[in-house]
């Protein structure tokens, strides 16, 4: 078990390191740097060189990368070139809207998909089960930004019930904060719910063919009762795993949603930092996101070790 944990941890750190190198190289391949953004079209080459020197981006790329990596090792992500903000503090500040968005999306998607997926599985051979399935398929195929725009037009512009965009911190106005996040969370959770519903449906159909369901029904449970009492519990365990693994997808969805709803979260910071060629901000963000996703994967991996006796047995056999 310890060996399994250590191996997973080493893989996590190695993956994060490789990921940060890939991001570093890709951002540099885009062309242009933060000085191009700052000075714009007007600057003379000598002034561009002066600014590059001032910001330390005239050094070889390897030196720049290692300098950043040394900072990371000591817990210092550095400061942004343009606005001069502390990157770590900025990421923490931006986590609020993104966590509300992603966790809110998960909190809505998981129970909703359990209900819809189970309903669809129980009624798999009936029209109403098929309808849920078709709706889930449609949900998967609707892009998040389009769903967001439709929600804005209906609930923001047409009905005027909810804000069309912007973020209100909870500390400033709790009700305003909740209202500002309703549409973004709905837009983000739509596709995720659809994916989870399909997953729960498939898992439930499998579970419904298990012996223990037949046993429960033989003891007098109805098919629906057996599904709800015994089936949902079994089908939902892998759903939690999938939800953890889907977190990366949720962050990707947050990039789109935060831009549609003008939310100052991590996703928007990724876009503005990339467009502004704030290389160390992009690198740091990529590292943090990768670590979050990898830690979740790591925890799932560890959980498998505990939950699945076959992994423990394999470890013992190899020892």
């Amino acid at each position: 078990m310890i060996r399994h944990t250590l191996r997973s941890l080493a893989t996590l750190l190695f993956a994060a390191l490789i990921g940060s190198i890939v991001v570093f190289v890709l951002v540099h391949m885009l062309g242009g740097d933060v000085v191009t953004v700052l000075l714009g079209r007007e600057a003379a080459p000598k002034d561009v060189q002066f600014m590059r020197q001032k910001l330390g981006i005239d050094r070889p790329l390897v030196v720049q990368y290692l300098h950043w990596l040394r900072g990371v090792a000591t817990g210092d992500l550095g400061t942004s070139y343009g606005m001069g903000y502390d990157i770590f503090h900025e990421i923490v500040r931006r986590m609020g809207p993104t966590l509300i968005l992603t966790l809110g999306g998960l909190l809505i998607s998981i129970p909703l998909s359990l209900v819809l997926g189970t309903y669809s599985a129980i009624n798999a051979k009936k029209v109403r089960g098929g309808i849920v399935d078709v709706v889930a398929q449609v949900g998967i195929s609707i892009p998040a930004f389009w769903a967001g725009l439709l929600l804005v037009l209906v609930f923001g512009v047409r009905l005027g019930w909810l804000p069309t965009g912007g973020y209100v911190p909870f500390s400033d106005d709790p009700l305003g904060s909740i209202r500002s996040m309703i549409l973004p969370v709905m837009a983000l959770s739509l596709g995720v719910t659809a994916v989870f519903t399909r997953y729960v449906r498939t898992a439930m159909i499998d579970v419904m063919n298990e012996d223990f369901i037949r046993s429960a029904m033989a003891r007098g449970r109805t098919r629906r009762g057996a599904a709800l009492v015994h089936g949902v519990r079994n089908a939902s365990i892998p759903l939690v795993t999938v939800a953890a693994l889907q977190f990366g997808q949720l962050i990707a969805g947050a990039v789109v949603i935060e831009n549609v709803f003008v939310l100052p979260g991590i996703g928007r910071l990724i876009v503005t930092a990339t467009l502004g060629r704030e290389v160390i901000v992009v690198q740091s963000l990529a590292l943090v996101i990768m670590l979050i996703v990898l830690v979740l994967n790591f925890l799932v991996d560890i959980a498998y070790g505990f939950l699945d006796p076959r992994i423990r047995d394999k470890e013992a056999a190899n020892a």
Partner: peptide, 11 residues
Amino acid sequence: TAALNGLLAGE
């Protein structure tokens, strides 16, 4: 699009 929607919504 977001800016114009916000204008329409009175924000």
